[in-house]
Amino acid sequence: MEHRTLGRSGCAVSSLTLGTMTFGHETDEAGAHAQLDAFLAAGGTLIDTADVYTRGASETIIGRWLARQPAEVRDRVVLATKGRFPMGDAPNDVGLSRRHLSAALDASLRRLQVDHVDLYQVHAWDPLTPLEETWAFLDDAVRAGKVHYLGLSNYAGWQVQKVADLAAHRGLARPVTLQPQYNLLVREIEWEIVPACAENGLGLLPWSPLGGGWLTGKYKRDQRPEGATRLGEDPERGVEAYDRRSTAQRTWDVIDAVESVATDRGVSMAQVALAWLHDRPQVTSVILGARTLEQLEDNLGAAGLHLTADETAALDAASDPAPADYPYGGPGVEQRTRLLP
């Protein structure tokens, strides 16, 4: 397993991350602990969770696993969690206010059975709470030793820049990472969000690297999902998104390109999609979210897999979102890329 620094911090993390959103919901505790064991055995170190994942169950499962590990294992783990979304029904049980985040962070530490987390991330933008209030609390949490580093999740480019400017202007702890959705089918973050992160030294921790399973090849053209897929087991779940994606020619162009590389390499389609993302600019670590140990073990096969320039170019061409007009397409491309004479 390769290691990289967590954004511009000095903290080294594995270039693949174990995501734990399935823990306590699609993956029971025994299965979750098996995934954690396998991930550490493969050389992984960064474990990502959130308080809202199964209303605290994911953190609780991780906490029980951590509690039975020897000190040398616990010391290798780089632990990340998030706060922002509802954890109760009261008006202050949600958001990025000092009141909610203070309670949310303390509750996460209790469930995880630790006195600090390495990376604490705000799970999404909060339009109701002044940014100054949120970031003052987060800076206090760093100074109190409850948090080592700060991160963002699901922020737009202008929001990333606003946080970076505020932290720099007021001398507060700066964010080191952003967690966005990013994969061969979702590349629009490259237009503004990735440049904003590059400008401010934030590493990317992409979630949904396999596009909800599309990039594994489990969905077929002109064939409704069935069987052991999330949509096959629950046909009403995400049917609109499925129909929208399945009718787009670009979807099948990308899948065909991934399959071609995978066949030539003798590896799985998932490993090809992960390898492509693993080596994108600004990516620190790719978050693997598996329901089963078998899925995780296949995903871990992407560790150390690097595509050739020709393979990468073929995937880039097939997955190019090709914005139609200004500011991202048309003359906007030239303005972003052309050097002054």
Rank of each mutant, 00 (worst) to 15 (best):
M1D: 07
E2F: 14
C11R: 15
C11M: 15
S14F: 04
T27C: 13
A34H: 13
Q35S: 03
G43N: 05
G44H: 08
T45Y: 01
T49S: 15
T49L: 05
A50M: 11
A57C: 05
G63S: 07
L66G: 03
A67Y: 05
Q69P: 05
V73D: 00
R74V: 04
V77E: 10
D93M: 04
A103V: 10
L105H: 09
D106F: 07
D106I: 01
S108C: 11
L119F: 01
L119Q: 04
V122G: 05
D126S: 09
D126F: 08
P130Q: 03
E132C: 05
D140A: 10
V147H: 06
H148L: 15
Y149H: 15
Y149C: 00
L150A: 07
L150M: 11
S153H: 09
N154H: 10
Q159K: 04
K162S: 14
A168F: 06
A173P: 13
W191Q: 14
L202Y: 08
G203F: 12
G213M: 01
P225H: 02
T229K: 03
T229Y: 09
R230E: 02
G232W: 09
D234K: 15
R237N: 13
A241M: 14
D243H: 07
A248G: 02
W252I: 12
V254D: 08
I255R: 03
I255Q: 09
D256I: 00
E259S: 15
T263V: 12
A273M: 08
I287M: 15
L293I: 11
L293T: 07
E294K: 14
L300M: 13
G304F: 04
H306V: 09
A313K: 14
A313N: 08
A314W: 07
L315T: 03
A318R: 11
S319V: 01
P323W: 06
A324P: 07
V333T: 04
E334S: 06
Q335P: 00
R338I: 01
R338K: 14
L339E: 10
